[in-house]
Every structure is written in structure tokens, then in C-alpha cells.
Simulated assay, not measured.
Amino acid sequence: MSAFFTLPVAKTRRNENCGVVIKATEPTEDTSAVFSMGMALLIVAIMWSVSSWGYYALVHALALERGYDQAPMLVSGYYLMWSIAAAAAFWSVLSSRLTLPLVTGHLRTLIPALLIFGTYVAMILPLLPEVSVELAPPNPPEFMFASAWYYLPKSTDILFQQVLISAMVFSAARTKISLPKISLGMAVLFGGFHLLLALEGFTALYVIRFTIAASIFGLFVPYLYLKTRYGFRWAYGLHWSFYAVDATVTHFMLGASI
């Protein structure tokens, strides 16, 4: 009789133990979130690195000195392709923000803004003191001696960067990371990416300037995306404006008449 009543109890205990083992081996929500965020960062790093390598390979293959300025249509298409690829890679995160009404609204706002920017770099920037070859640093960045055509591919380059930035911000938000932590992380990541400019032979002053600017921008861009209604418009507009302001300051600082 004792064995009869003991057997079901033993089976019950074994079942309970199996349940404990199964639960212990199942991925927790925190583990899944960390893995998801890690994969997002890995994809961003790969796309950023490969796109940069591909640009320089393209410039080398075409024997160009300044790809943005000398082949603006080709480079514009190149970064537009990368923008589409990045959006596709992060479609699960960005799809709700890439609906037709939202995209149309962005275009209605940004196209006039881009026309204003374009008018400035085409009409006003050439009137400023021309950058002196003697005052310019060794291996100067393209924009120092570029025409207004430089800013056409730069516009799609900025678009590609903003797709990657928004993907990281929304991926982090989806994993319940707080806004201050996202801001700090983006400041470190976006600034850190610009440190790679040193590998391209640019001067320390140029690398430091762009890294600091990128870090400050990275600190505030999560707020734009997560707390404002039209975060992409603000982020894209501010990002583009930096290049216009930096070019203006450069013309005055390194101008031939100085």
C-alpha cells in the first residue's frame, strides 16, 4: 500500500523538477532584450563600416579625388541605396514610422528646407572667402574645396546616418532602456564612430571637432526621436545644418583673405 501511494508522489516531484529545469533554460525577457540590442548595434556597425569602405573603393575604381563633388549623382544613389537597405534591415523597428502619410509629411517639410539649404551653399557660400590651400590642413576633407554639388550626395549620406541612428534609438527604447541611458549611449557611439575619421588620414583637430559635435548631437537626438512629434525632421535638419555652419566657419577661418 505504501508503494502504491508513493509512486504518484514521486512522479509529481519529477514533473515539478522538469518544469523548473525548463523554466531555467528558457530565455528571460532581459536576456532577449540584451541580445536584440546587441544585434542591432552589430548590424549598424557592419553597415556603417562596409558603406564607408565601399565609398572609398568606388572612388578609387573611378580614379576620383573627391567623389561627392566629382560624381554627385552616383554617390547620391550609392547612399540612397544604403538608406533603403538600412530601413529594410530594421523594418521591424521602423515600419510603424515609415507609413505613407508620415513619409509624405516628411517630404513636404524637408524638400523646401533642402531647397533653402541648397540655395545657401550654391549662392551664399561661394561669396565667402575662398579656403586657402596654404592654410588648409594636409589631406583636407572634401567639403573645404567642394562646389555646391558636394551637398547633394551629402544629403543622402545624412539620410543613411539618420536611418541608422533612429534604428538604434528605437531598438533601445523597445528594450525599455531609459532615455538618459539611451542619450549617453548614443553620445558615446555616434562620437566614437567619428573617431574613425582618424584612420582616413584627417588631422587631429578635424577629427576632434567632428567627434565632439557628433557626441553632442548624439546626446540630444534620442529626445528628438522619442519625445517630439516630428523627430526625424528635426534630427535630419539639424544634422544637415551642422555641415552648412561648419563650412561657413571654415571659409572664414581658412579664407585666403585672412
Rank of each mutant, 00 (worst) to 15 (best):
S166A: 12
H60S: 10
R108Q: 04
Y120A: 11
E142K: 03
T6C: 09
V59M: 14
N139F: 03
S83V: 02
V131Q: 05
R233C: 05
F5V: 13
R97G: 07
D69G: 09
S32G: 01
Y55R: 08
T104W: 00
L219D: 11
P112Y: 05
H239I: 00
D69P: 10
M39D: 06
Y206I: 10
A45V: 06
S95M: 07
R14L: 15
V93R: 14
K176C: 05
A3T: 13
A198D: 04
S96G: 03
S92Q: 14
M186L: 15
E130P: 01
A87H: 02
M168R: 00
P112V: 03
F220D: 06
A85N: 07
P129D: 08
V44W: 01
I216T: 08
Y151S: 13
A247L: 14
Y236E: 01
T109Y: 02
T109K: 03
V103D: 01
M39R: 12
L135D: 04
G38V: 08
E16N: 15
F160T: 04
F117C: 13
E26Q: 12
V75L: 15
L100T: 05
V249S: 04
I177Q: 03
N139P: 01
P72I: 14
E16C: 08
K154F: 12
V188G: 08
R108P: 00
I124E: 04
V249W: 14
G54C: 10
L74N: 03
L224G: 07
K181L: 12
K227A: 05
Y56Q: 12
A61D: 08
V188M: 14
T12D: 07
V44T: 11
M1G: 11
L94C: 07
F143D: 09
A148W: 15
L62A: 14
A136R: 02
L152D: 01
P222R: 04
A63S: 15
L100F: 04
V169D: 05
M186A: 13
S215P: 08
A256W: 04
A89D: 07
S171V: 00
Y68N: 10
N17D: 15
V103F: 04
L7S: 09
L7P: 01
A204R: 06
Y206L: 10
S49C: 05
I111K: 00
S76W: 08
